[in-house]
Amino acid sequence: MDSGSVSTRGPCSVHPWRGYFRSVAMFRLQGSKVLAVDMTQDAVKAKNGSMVAYDGEMAFKKLSGGGEGLRGMVTRRITGEQMTVMEVRGQGTCWFADRASEITLVGLQGDKLYVESSNFLAADAGLRTGTSFTGTRGASQGNGLFTTTIEGHGQAAIMSDGPAVVLRVSAQYPLTVDPGAYVAHQGNLRQSFQSGVTFRTLFGEGGGEAFQIRFEGDGLVYVQPSERNTIAGDV
């Protein structure tokens, strides 16, 4: 690689952390459905097969078990929260997209992002990924009882069907979300599962929103303007 082409590449070459800290891949959106990542010999984890183009030198390596080691692999297999992830390392720009889904960038400063594995697109390789138990919320979404967590300092990109709306939850404003529209959440949030199932539901006269997730605490919730098919979709 000639270093001349790198200097024309914009943000990554003037990244303030370079030199005294490990270099960090720069995430930016090109439109709302394509993610461009500028890399300087660093790496990102991305959903398998989501690369649409790159320039420069890139190496793509499948990470078995999402790069979480043997334990993570076994956990993912057992929990059904499967995620096929590749590691992209190199020098240049790599573009990612998946089925024209809308992409949202999430910046993490040491906090934890909870996202469904099907909504995960890419994350800085320095971020730790893992699985966590979601309880009844996961069951009501039809996405299984477990969810993916991303933790550390860096950026991640998540996908949604339609542009995600970011809703802030604070002590005075708790939020209630339809399980089918939930995409991700971050911060210090407690979630509880609300069921509005009454005897009316049995007679087909339910309120239409029989299962809801209530978020309390302090953080952000990402919802998409579309509903997945959930087991309780029509109750």
Binding site: P174, V177, G180
Partner: peptide
Amino acid sequence: FLQKGKMIAYYGTIDFNGIGH
């Protein structure tokens, strides 16, 4: 009036009741 399943999130206290209520 709201068609079933079109609500994606809400703040505050909102009740959803079927037409037969």
